[in-house]
């Protein structure tokens, strides 16, 4: 199977010094579910940001869908891979949940009827109907996580990177998010789950990667 995301000898160091990742080689298929685990500061989030293009590798190359990722703009990468931030608040910019989910669809040329239909579908899927007109910043942490995911899933990306989506959630909320991710998987969308939660990772992912000291074990 062809790799949807491929990293070749990718290393990353901060400009002020301090190597975070060293010679990472990784192949990810489009509908695979992979967990990326490792202690704090091991470079998990950095790896996710390198794939999506928020950071540039110090050396090595990233390929998405067979093309060198350098050739893609940030928006082009965003169309191929959905990225759910570690802090969901960081990705909200609309004044209601409905607008947040429909925002990118509208700007990507979808007709208003279809946007409405897709938004309603997402509100139902993520159990957010009752908050349709709520200000995103006023939601609870669990609801924010669900909204962040809904806004990304609505775009139908080929693959999703989720950065620590279970952080700050209680047991019940974790179960709910787990159900949502299972639904995502059932729809044939693959994901890279950056997490500390080993149980959740083994339940939700077919492959678990361990990152330690900037290297994949």
């Amino acid at each position: 199977m062809t790799a949807y995301i491929k990293l070749e000898q990718v290393s990353f160091s901060w400009p002020q010094g301090g190597q975070v990742l060293r010679d990472i080689n990784l192949s990810i298929e489009k509908n695979s579910t992979i967990a990326l685990m490792g202690p704090n500061g091991s470079g998990k989030t950095t790896l996710g940001k390198l794939i999506i293009g928020l950071l540039k590798p110090s050396s090595g190359r990233v390929f998405i869908s067979g093309t060198d990722a350098e050739e893609y703009s940030l928006a082009a990468r965003g169309r191929l891979i959905g990225y759910v931030f570690q802090n969901p608040e960081g990705q909200f910019f609309a004044s209601t949940i409905t607008e947040e989910i429909g925002f990118a669809l509208k700007y990507r040329g979808m007709s208003p009827d279809k946007v409405q239909q897709r938004v309603e579908e997402m509100l139902t899927l993520f159990e957010l109907e009752e908050y349709a007109d709520t200000f995103p910043f006023n939601l609870s942490q669990g609801e924010k996580q669900r909204l962040a995911l809904a806004a990304i899933i609505a775009l139908r990306p080929g693959f999703i990177i989720l950065d620590e989506p279970f952080t700050g959630l209680d047991w019940l909320r974790k179960q709910r998010l787990q159900e949502v991710l299972q639904r995502v998987r059932n729809e044939g969308v693959g994901y890279l789950l950056i997490s500390h939660d080993r149980d959740m990772a083994s339940r939700l992912c077919s492959r678990v990667l361990q990152l330690e000291g900037g290297e994949l074990q």
């Binding site: 999506i52 928020l54 703009s73 940030l74 928006a75 082009a76 990468r77 965003g78 169309r79 990225y83 931030f85 608040e89 960081g90 990705q91 909200f92 910019f93 609309a94 004044s95 925002f103 990118a104 700007y107 990507r108 910043f137 806004a151 990304i152 775009l155």
Partner: peptide, 28 residues
């Protein structure tokens, strides 16, 4: 970056619309 990561090519959309998108940034 969050807006661009939703697949919106800011440079490609007309100036009026682009300004409207920028106005969204004030909210967060």
């Amino acid at each position: 970056a969050a807006i661009e990561l939703r697949g919106i090519e800011l440079k490609a959309i007309p100036l009026g619309q682009r300004l409207k998108v920028y106005s969204y940034l004030l909210m967060p």
